[in-house]
Simulated scan of single mutants.
Amino acid sequence: NEFLKRLAITFLHLIALSMAVYLRPPPAEGLFGTDARSICRYTAEFGTCLGAVSFVVFQQGEEIKAQGLLGFLFSLSGNPSKAVFLLANVLVMLCVPFRLAEQRLIEDLLLIIAIPSSWFFLIFFAGAVKLTGPFVTMIYNMLVGDIFRFSIIYLIFLLGFTQAFYFLFKGHLGKSTRFETYPRTWMSLFHMTLGFYE
């Protein structure tokens, strides 16, 4: 019963988060409106913030009281989906001061990380089901082993070639702005490794 209750609360939180993001206006428009769409978005944002505060402060606070801080951090190292969900909820809570300061770009960046991280928590529930549990274990083993090692080698090559291309094209851009700045060069080379280049 506790498992199903937590799953239902997680689904409500994810639906509220998705609605809050889906109803956001384009960047040209402001985030403070009085139309029906804005009111629905405010309701979804309030529900999302309420869920984030209850998870971080109350639920995790009880666990920290019961286990101690070091025990809690050690338990997070064995449960990556919960650690990522905790990070996502902290990022959602950080969106509030940036909304009040009207820093939409920073708020958007926080949400870009928080949204997939929140959905990743469903892996925790899938691991407890007999049908999907072995696949979750297999994916964790692949992430910790093979993909982690590949990522280290991939990043070494990507960062090395990013510096080379950035300095090679510095001052010789012509019509292309693909290598104009270091972050844009990094993103262009990342796209090239996926096959998106002329």
Rank of each mutant, 00 (worst) to 15 (best):
V56A: 11
V92F: 06
V129W: 11
V56T: 06
I15E: 01
T43C: 13
R99L: 08
R24F: 09
E62C: 13
K82Y: 09
F46E: 11
L87N: 06
L14R: 01
V56R: 02
L7D: 02
R99M: 09
L69Y: 11
A16Q: 02
Y42L: 11
A114S: 07
M93I: 12
L70W: 10
V21R: 08
I115H: 03
L76A: 10
V90I: 14
E29H: 15
F135M: 12
P97V: 01
A128V: 07
M19C: 13
V53E: 09
Q60V: 06
C49Q: 14
V53D: 09
L14M: 04
K5P: 07
N89Q: 07
G78F: 07
Q67G: 10
I112L: 15
L17H: 04
K82T: 13
A126T: 09
I64T: 06
L100I: 07
L109V: 07
P26W: 11
I106N: 03
Q59A: 15
N141S: 15
L131F: 07
I139P: 00
F124L: 02
Y42E: 08
V90R: 01
M93C: 10
S18K: 05
L69W: 13
Q59D: 11
T34N: 15
G47C: 15
N141H: 12
A28P: 05
G33E: 14
S54Q: 12
T10P: 01
Q60T: 10
E62I: 11
Y22D: 08
